[in-house]
Write a protein that binds this DNA or RNA. Sequence first.
DNA 1: CCTTGCCTTGACGCTGACGACAAGGTTTAG
DNA 2: CTAAACCTTGTCGTCAGCGTCAAGGCAAGG
Lengths: 130, 130
Amino acid sequence: MLIGELAERAGTSTRTLRYYEAHGLVHPQRSANGYRVYDEAELRVVQEIRALLDVGFGLDDVRPFVACLRAGNESGNVCPDSVLVLRRKLAEVDDYLDRLGAVRQQLHTQLTHAIAHREETCPRRRASAP
Amino acid sequence: MLIGELAERAGTSTRTLRYYEAHGLVHPQRSANGYRVYDEAELRVVQEIRALLDVGFGLDDVRPFVACLRAGNESGNVCPDSVLVLRRKLAEVDDYLDRLGAVRQQLHTQLTHAIAHREETCPRRRASAP
DNA sequence: CCTTGCCTTGACGCTGACGACAAGGTTTAG
DNA sequence: CTAAACCTTGTCGTCAGCGTCAAGGCAAGG
């Protein structure tokens, strides 16, 4: 399988595949003319990478999962290093959820006060009419 | 007040103040030698900018609040444009909270499955011992 | 006069995951 | 012969909010 086919099958671009290779996530062989040649297993690998990136992982975070898949496991999650990353990421997400919740609260408060201020300085006719 | 003093009082850098000016958020006067001269009110403006950026706003989102303050209001939140931005940002945050919650759920699931798989293929001695 | 410490504009660096383009080689089909 | 459709490496652009020099002007104290 050449790079174009893998790109299409994985729903990504050739640029992306070369990028992953440059960062050590994919290791295609080369044909006589220098073309990259991928075997079927790489499709799974690329899909795993994409799935993790979509969830907010960085390339470095993805490495253990790729290695885990390549080690013959049917899931990239089951290796110790992957579990460590999963734990860390879960903690990060929880942290971010907390902060984002606080931000939401603050925005809500500001908005409420702004509306209240508006009622104060410029009362609605409908609302205050008998 | 010169740029260095304002930077220190606002807890930011001169570079940052020049950056804000380049993006139309601050309009200092100039002294005879070309130095930027700020009046007291700009401190409030810069603080408002910093507070909003810290919450995740972009410079463009901040503009209405700055204009609102400069219009003489004691809060930057009370003007219609500011309220619009607040509403939009609140919606964005809610959206992001939803997606992040889904991600958290997925991570949790993956982690749970990975652990379960581990128990399966390599059961703990303590847990299964009589 | 010289140093110190302000200030000025200008321009590149950074982070991440690519997109887009350049300039060229290869293979196949017509 | 040539066009089409692949492929190669290399390099610059993107988004945001600045950090970090670089090179120089201005003011005051010793």
